[in-house]
Computed example of a mutant assay.
Amino acid sequence: MTEVREGKAAIPGGELWYWDTGGDGPPVVLLHAGTGSALSWPDQRAAFAEAGYRVVGYSRRGHYRSSAASPEAPGSGADDLAALASVLDLGPFHAVAVAAGGIFAADFALGHPAALRSLVIAGSVMGIADADWQARLGALRFPGFRDLPHDFLELGPTYRAENPDGLAEWRRIHELAYNGGEMVVQDISNEITWASLGGLAPPVLLIVGGADLYVPPPVMREAAARIPGAQLVVMPDAGHCAQWEQPEEFNRAVLGFIGRVEAART
């Protein structure tokens, strides 16, 4: 693996901080959760690079070391990703997204289908606007749900009980996530619906933790059933941040999937 480089990519309206392992392998771009940043992938960066991929992680607008996002003009997360891919000359890449990152990954897949080799989304509501999906998600929550501590909502109880050092590091990264400000949610460029997702071009893998409070396994199974050809992996005991809590299992599932996609392309 070549030395990891860091930089800021100039995009319309700002800059995105990124790291890039380099190399000649197929690119893999990592899209973090709303509570995280490009720092959220310590266990994926080396593992994916050692498997032969060029791995890129970046902080979305308003997150760690990237330009601030204003509530009045937050920009489009999908458009920012397209600009980053152009600056880094990635060509078609594998997108691996968790939680809120999955919303922007789905949006990007709809607007830039030729730019993706595959799409992996873990523990995400995916921004689907259909009323039945919104009602099902809403039924899982109660007044004050979103006011609970982020680590309680994002990390499963098994992880919180067994890994105090990992919990502390997750909290540290979260505290750095918004550059000292508040999270600003970026815009979506495309209408994300069951109908539009039904026409997705790239192969799709969905991953869900058995203890995910936002999108538990029965809900993600429904999504997998309604996205033609989508594969589903359930990771018992993991919460909303499966890649952080169970990195070995997460990496094995993702690398197996994108490896099969690459084999089919040759």
Results as ranks from 00 to 15, higher is better:
residue 84 L to D: 12
residue 201 A to M: 11
residue 86 S to W: 00
residue 236 P to N: 10
residue 178 Y to H: 14
residue 69 A to V: 11
residue 121 I to K: 03
residue 152 F to L: 15
residue 163 N to T: 11
residue 153 L to N: 06
residue 174 H to M: 09
residue 245 E to M: 13
residue 30 L to E: 12
residue 103 I to G: 01
residue 71 P to S: 10
residue 88 L to I: 01
residue 37 S to T: 13
residue 65 R to S: 08
residue 7 G to V: 00
residue 158 T to I: 04
residue 10 A to C: 00
residue 207 I to S: 03
residue 264 A to G: 10
residue 252 R to F: 03
residue 154 E to Q: 14
residue 190 N to H: 15
residue 9 A to E: 01
residue 152 F to D: 13
residue 258 I to D: 06
residue 261 V to M: 13
residue 30 L to P: 12
residue 184 V to Y: 01
residue 164 P to V: 00
residue 184 V to S: 04
residue 265 R to D: 05
residue 263 A to G: 02
residue 249 E to S: 12
residue 8 K to R: 08
residue 179 N to P: 07
residue 67 S to C: 10
residue 264 A to T: 03
residue 139 A to P: 09
residue 141 R to H: 09
residue 244 W to C: 11
residue 137 L to Q: 10
residue 248 E to C: 03
residue 149 P to Q: 07
residue 243 Q to R: 07
residue 108 F to A: 09
residue 165 D to H: 02
residue 133 W to T: 07
residue 4 V to L: 03
residue 261 V to W: 13
residue 130 D to N: 05
residue 102 G to T: 06
residue 39 L to W: 09
residue 172 R to E: 04
residue 260 R to A: 15
residue 216 P to E: 13
residue 39 L to C: 07
residue 20 D to W: 04
residue 94 H to M: 14
residue 95 A to M: 05
residue 171 R to I: 13
residue 85 A to R: 04
residue 195 A to I: 02
residue 72 E to Q: 13
residue 69 A to K: 08
residue 195 A to Y: 01
residue 124 S to E: 05
residue 244 W to D: 12
residue 30 L to K: 10
residue 78 A to R: 05
residue 170 W to C: 01
residue 192 I to F: 06
residue 175 E to A: 15
residue 126 M to T: 09
residue 230 A to Q: 11
residue 80 D to S: 06
residue 160 R to L: 14
residue 151 D to E: 15
residue 222 E to I: 15
residue 235 M to P: 01
residue 103 I to W: 04
residue 209 G to S: 12
residue 221 R to C: 11
residue 111 G to Q: 04
residue 244 W to S: 10
residue 30 L to W: 12
residue 6 E to G: 00
residue 18 Y to S: 07
residue 193 T to M: 10
residue 25 G to R: 05
residue 70 S to N: 03
residue 47 A to N: 07
residue 108 F to T: 02
